[in-house]
Nucleic acid binder design. Structure first.
Length: 916
RNA sequence: GCCCGGAUGGUGAAAUCGGUAAACACUGCGGACUUAAAAUCCGCCGCCGCAAGGCUUACGGGUUCAAGUCCCGUUCCGGGCACCA
């Protein structure tokens, strides 16, 4: 056996073994419990980043752990291969998105393999292949048939120079990313999936998802946003030659019908028919509406922008008081929520209050809480409270919130002008994208027949893969061979739809496709019934709402089409935290920042302040300067061609001088690894330098899976050092310890000497803790436990057959607990130390009760809640005996200072607290 | 702005049900080995204090024999906000 730890050799051999034995290829097997472990598939952006490595390491730990516990484990992998970055790369490099994407997949696949994940590669898929996206198209057609998909208008960001639709990401400060032109809102037709039809079920089924984090369920529930309120109409006589607008009714929705008597104005969206009508004769209003068209379609911008409005000069009639109420246009009213109009109750709605103050509109208090006094000076929290009673509200006076809403809803209903209604915040899912690199929407536009679905036998509608977008719109418009098609209905020349599907469609059902036998001409087959649902899903918290909600919706549609029987796709969800790294930059002329990669930066603390610099690129050893200085008592020795001197005083006035080689850079914050901040750490370089096991171990060890992880080069070296020690001990075991073991094992029946028993107990205790933590999916402390085990094993007695047997048992436990984290080294040692052929086939270790027993335990002694000592008592001591021992303890006597003990609390196995 | 999280030593973090705060590491410092360096091994390391002891889990209150953990309020940081994935 090799005495040095050589990760490259060990890892190559282990991976070859897994490959040649097809170790991770699985099929349905009814004799075993199944465990479907799924990590969110990567976008093939070019190279793996640390977020991927973290995600798949967590998944791999779970997969390997369950496999050793006897589960039939499926862990697949694939590629979320359509999307905007491929088009951006095409614009930049003049390479078709398809080529860029497939090249990236090939590269990243080899990177994934080098990390030793237990993946069944026979199930690999890429969403940009026709055999996959055919089924997007097929199910979309079923949705059209069922009325779940429909065509209507959508609001998009329009770049007037490039004449193209922009993604939100491509709008920077209200301007197009390439042209710098002011972006406009524009309405165009597109396809929608009616996720709102499933709102109730998507909300109520959250209760079934016991394996999901509460916060994710809460976020989803808030996103769906069920609110019960009253929808009612203000009547009016505004109309034109086509009759009254909206049949003389302006509908609004409110959750605060109890404040209806406090309405002093109404506000409508800029796109509302009443606003458009008024604008015809009001140039100022027309200009305001035009202004509202520019600006963001994003909710965050809508919510933070200055609330502005303009009166329309139109009036509507309050349905209960009969009073005339002026209608304003407000830039904060969304046409897409409810009916695009709201009632304005400034006394009890914070936004209305600010609006009324700004435009000097009347404010009338109609709710009172206790004896609190209402004032118009500033908004008070209680103005919006539902805990008060109605005042100044005629017949509704003195009613509480619920009673008032009921009474008002009943009166509105009696007048046939309103009713209670459930309103959802959730909007329908617009899936049309005016973009090339996506799944074609299977529709043909015919002048005679309209929008005609592509017949099933003509699927898939294949996307030409050789287009190169140039940023000025969808290149499919110029592809006549794609565009020209005969109408399936009437046979006359027609035109294909050029819009493609949102990439969230692709990722809404890939998990079901992995579980299907490929080749079968079906979207999913019987094998899915065995594997689904996904037992464990792992991915970034940033997907907590959209991707997960769309996947749940898509599953329910597949169920309603009769494809599957389950109603939820993911039983357990683990939301991993982000991978962060420090950022560094140089300030360039004009205030621009040039970001410097952390791998080129050296940092030091000088006089209590942090400094960073980039080592000189061209270190010139021909003219080496050797400099020795003193700073903070430490010697600094550097060789460089360019030097920089940093001087600083710490808070005690001591001056430090440090001479550094290189250019100073500014220290930014610790942020998510990203290209834009140039703070990514390359996993490939790391694997080359230290091996996959070190990389995996560091990632698992350094943070709880759900928490963000801060990158540290020094920490990686610590992980490497640990694995070296594991290997070194394995070598010592093989050469010095194992040879002491006799022909027959005696451990099971032997009475161990105290030191050996204590050591064995420690390992089994650590194992018990590790198993508990694995159950909690807290892998960082499992990694700690393996380090503690090695610390104990290295110090354990190793002379004699019995000691060797205990070490054999304990090191075997360590190797197995380590194997999901660092499978390569575990594989090599398990095999070479004679534990067995393949650690994958070994059973997961369980602690032995016999090894855990102890005679004496230590209890902490507190006096008035403060720690004053400890006492050793027999493990089976009674409460009275413990009390007596505690009161007799010198620490207790000293700190009670002669006072009698008022109360003695004994917490079994932990502590005694004397109150005196 | 709205919704959801988070905050513990010089650093990453641990503390299971309210019961020893800082396990396990990293950095740093001291030492051994070495001609030297690397590697490895041993020791020390929250703050104040000579000590006894006191203080300490972002900040301010509260509940409790006992609070990092529960409750109320505040600040700061992060994620999402529907066309980035």
């Amino acid at each position: 056996m090799q005495d040095k730890y050589l990760p490259a050799d060990i890892e190559r051999a282990a991976q070859q073994h897994w490959d040649s034995s097809e170790a991770f290829r699985v099929t349905a097997d009814a004799s075993k419990p199944k465990y479907y472990c799924l990590s969110m598939f990567p976008y093939p952006s070019g190279k793996l980043h640390m977020g991927h490595v973290r995600n798949y390491t967590i998944g791999d730990v779970l997969s390997r752990f369950h496999r050793m516990r006897g589960y039939n484990v499926l862990q697949p992998m694939g590629w979320d291969a359509f999307g905007l970055p491929a088009e951006n790369a095409a614009i930049k490099n003049k390479v078709p998105p398809a080529k860029w994407t497939y090249d990236n997949i090939a590269y990243m696949k080899q990177q994934l393999k080098s990390l030793g994940f237990a993946i069944d590669w026979s199930r690999e898929l890429a969403t940009c292949t026709p055999e996959y996206y055919k089924w997007n198209q097929w199910l979309f057609l079923r949705m059209l048939e069922k009325g779940v998909a429909e065509r209507k208008t959508q609001v998009v960001n329009w770049d007037p120079v490039d004449q193209t639709v922009l993604a939100n990401e491509q709008v920077i400060d209200g301007r197009g990313w390439r042209t710098g032109a002011l972006v406009e809102k524009r309405e165009i037709p597109g396809y929608y999936l009616k996720i709102t039809d499933y709102a109730d079920e998507l909300l109520s089924d959250l209760d079934e998802l016991e394996g999901w984090p509460e916060r994710v369920k809460l976020m989803q529930a808030n996103w769906i946003g069920k609110s019960t309120g009253v929808r009612f109409a203000f009547s009016h006589t505004v109309g034109d030659e086509n009759g009254l607008i909206g049949d003389g009714k302006m509908w609004v929705f409110t959750t605060r019908a109890d404040t209806i008597m406090g309405v002093t104005f109404c506000a409508v969206a800029a796109e509302h028919p009443l606003a458009l009508h008024a604008a015809k004769s009001n140039p100022e209003l027309a200009a305001f509406i035009e202004k509202c068209k520019h600006g963001s379609v994003m909710e965050a911008d809508m919510a933070t922008m200055e609330k502005e409005g303009l009166p329309t000069g139109l009036f509507v009639t309050h349905p209960l008081t009969g009073q005339q109420v002026e209608v304003w246009v407000g830039n904060y009213v969304l046409m897409s929520y409810g009916d695009g109009a709201v009632m304005g109750v400034p006394a009890h709605d914070e936004r209305d209050f600010a609006f009324a103050k700004k435009y000097s509109l009347p404010i009338e208090q109609v709710v009172a809480v206790g004896d609190k006094a209402y004032s118009l000076d500033a908004w008070q929290e209680w103005y919006g409270s539902k805990d008060g009673v109605c005042i100044n509200s005629g017949k509704y006076d003195d009613l509480g919130y619920a009673a008032a809403v009921d009474a008002i809803a009943a009166d509105l209903a009696a007048k046939n002008t309103g009713e209670k209604k459930v309103q959802w915040r959730l909007r329908d899912w617009g899936i049309s994208r005016q973009r090339y690199w996506g799944c074609p929407i299977p529709i043909i536009h015919c002048d005679a027949c309209g929008s005609v679905p592509v017949p099933d036998d003509q699927l898939p509608v294949v996307l030409p893969e050789d287009c190169v977008p140039d940023g000025s719109g969808n290149p499919l418009h110029k592809r006549l061979d794609f565009l020209h098609v005969d109408c399936p209905k009437c046979g006359k020349p027609a035109r294909r739809e050029t819009d493609t599907m949102d990439t969230f469609v692709d990722s809404s059902w890939y998990y079901a496709r992995y579980a299907t036998k490929f080749g079968a001409d079906k979207m999913v087959d019987e094998e899915t019934d065995y594997w689904m649902t996904v037992d464990q899903y792992i991915g970034g918290i940033e997907h907590a709402i959209l991707h997960l909600l769309y996947s749940r919706f898509w599953t329910k549609v597949m169920r309603d089409v009769g494809l599957v029987t389950y109603r939820e796709p993911f039983a357990h969800l683990l939301t991993q935290g982000m991978v962060l790294a420090p950022t560094y930059f140089r300030e360039l002329e004009g205030g621009k920042k040039e970001w410097v990669n952390p791998s080129n930066v050296t940092e030091s603390v000088i006089g209590g302040k942090r400094y960073a610099w980039v080592q000189n690129d061209g270190l010139d050893f021909g003219e080496t300067n050797l400099v020795e200085g003193r700073g903070n008592q430490s010697k600094i020795r550097i060789s460089a061609s360019k030097l920089d001197v940093i001087r600083d005083d710490d808070e005690h006035g001591k001056q430090s001088v440090v001479i550094v080689a290189g250019d100073r850079v500014q220290i930014g914050g610790v942020e998510k690894m990203s290209k834009s901040k140039n703070n990514g750490v390359d996993p490939e370089a790391l694997v080359k330098q230290f091996g996959a096991d070190t990389c995996r171990f560091f990632i698992i060890f350094t943070a709880h899976p759900e928490q963000s992880l801060e990158w540290s080069d020094a920490g990686v070296e610590g992980a490497y050092r640990f694995l070296k020690r594991v290997w070194t001990f394995g070598h010592a075991f093989a050469t010095d310890i194992r040879p002491q073991i006799g022909a027959t094992r005696t451990l099971a029946s032997a009475k161990l000497p105290d030191a050996l028993a204590a050591f064995r107990r420690e390992i089994h205790l650590l194992l018990k803790q590790a198993n508990y933590d694995l159950g909690k999916q807290q892998f960082n402390t499992v990694a700690s436990a393996t380090m503690k085990m090695l610390n104990a094993i290295e110090k354990a007695p190793r002379e004699g057959a019995l000691a060797a047997e205990v070490i054999e048992e304990c090191f075997g436990i360590l190797l197995r607990v380590l194997s999901p984290l660092t499978p390569h080294i575990s594989h090599a040692l398990w095999n070479q130390l004679g534990y067995g052929n393949d650690i994958l086939a070994a059973a997961w270790p369980e602690p032995l009760e016999a090894a855990l027993v102890q005679d004496e335990i230590e209890l902490m002694l507190q006096v008035n809640g403060k720690l004053r000592g400890s006492l050793r008592v027999p493990a089976d001591a009674t409460k009275d005996a413990i009390e007596a021992a505690a009161l007799a303890h010198e620490g207790a006597i000293k700190f009670l200072e002669g006072r009698p003990a008022k109360k003695v609390i004994v917490v079994p196995g932990r502590l005694v607290n004397i109150a005196g």
